[in-house]
Each structure stands twice: as C-alpha cells, then as structure tokens.
C-alpha cells in the first residue's frame, strides 16, 4: 500500500504541470494587460510605447515628437499617466489637457495633427463604466 518510486514521479510531474500552468497563466495575463501609448502624427502611428510591464515600471520617459509643420510636442510617459508637457503650437491646448491614464483616452494637438492615445486593455479597468476625469 505504500507509494512506490514511480508514484513519486507521478506526483512530481503533477506539481511541475501545476507550476507550469501558473507561469503560463501569468505570462498570458501580462500580455492581455498590455497598455500601449500610441503617438499618431498626420494620420500615421510614429511611436508606440509600452506603458505597463516590468521595464516600464517606475520610469519616466519624455519623447520629443517633431510635427509635420516643423513644430514639436514633448510627451511625458510615466506610471502616473501620459501628458504633453510642452509644445510650440499656437493654442497650446494639448499642454493644458489633463494627463491621461486609461485605455481609450487621448490628447489631441490639432495644429500639429498629433494624437496621443492609450490603447489596449487595462489590467483591471475597462474602457466603459469609469469615472470621467
């Protein structure tokens, strides 16, 4: 009645399988929760930056986007959100726009034909049924 050596292998195999499936589940969860910051200039996506994930954690990046008319926008991407911190467009509405964080939100700079938007599915927040900010 006592377990034999082969039985031990069966149980080890089961533990390995359970471990592997947890690893698989985790990696799949990351993939689904991937949030991208896309910068669209004059109708085409020129930058695509990952917002979540291990390498994006805690880092602050500033991108200088050269607009089609020769001007510029500076986009700051951090864990707290995405905002345009400087631009030489006449109205500077994009700079005054509040920072965006959730998928589906966007900042638009009409003079420079620039759209900064967040795409993908957030890890716990959906696009709908969220408080407007």
């Amino acid at each position: 009645m006592k377990p034999r050596i082969g039985d031990v292998f069966v149980y080890i195999f089961i533990i390995l399988l359970v471990g592997l499936s947890f690893i698989g589940l985790k990696s799949m969860g990351n993939h689904e929760g991937k949030v991208l910051v896309q910068v669209e200039s004059d109708g085409s996506i020129i930058e695509s930056v990952e917002m979540s994930g291990p390498e994006a954690e805690g880092s602050v990046r500033e991108l200088r986007i050269d607009a089609v008319d020769g001007g510029y926008n500076i986009v700051r991407i951090s864990a707290d959100g995405v905002e345009i911190i400087d631009a030489d467009c006449p109205d500077r509405l994009c700079v005054y726009s509040p920072s965006i964080k959730n998928p589906g939100q966007s900042i638009v700079c009409i003079p420079h034909k620039l759209i900064v938007r967040i795409t993908g599915r957030g890890p716990d927040k959906g696009i709908v049924d969220d408080t407007a900010s």
Binding site: M1, P3, R4, I5, G6, D7, V10, Y11, F13, I14, L17
Partner: peptide, 17 residues
C-alpha cells in the same frame, strides 16, 4: 513496462492526469 515501479494508484493517477 514499469509495473514494478508503480502501484495501481500511481498508474491510475497518471491516467487521470
């Protein structure tokens, strides 16, 4: 092939897995 190393319970568990 490995009758001597496995109990019925071990083989049955592997089958279930």
């Amino acid at each position: 092939n490995f009758k001597d190393y496995f109990s019925f319970m071990g083989i049955s568990t592997a089958g279930a897995v």
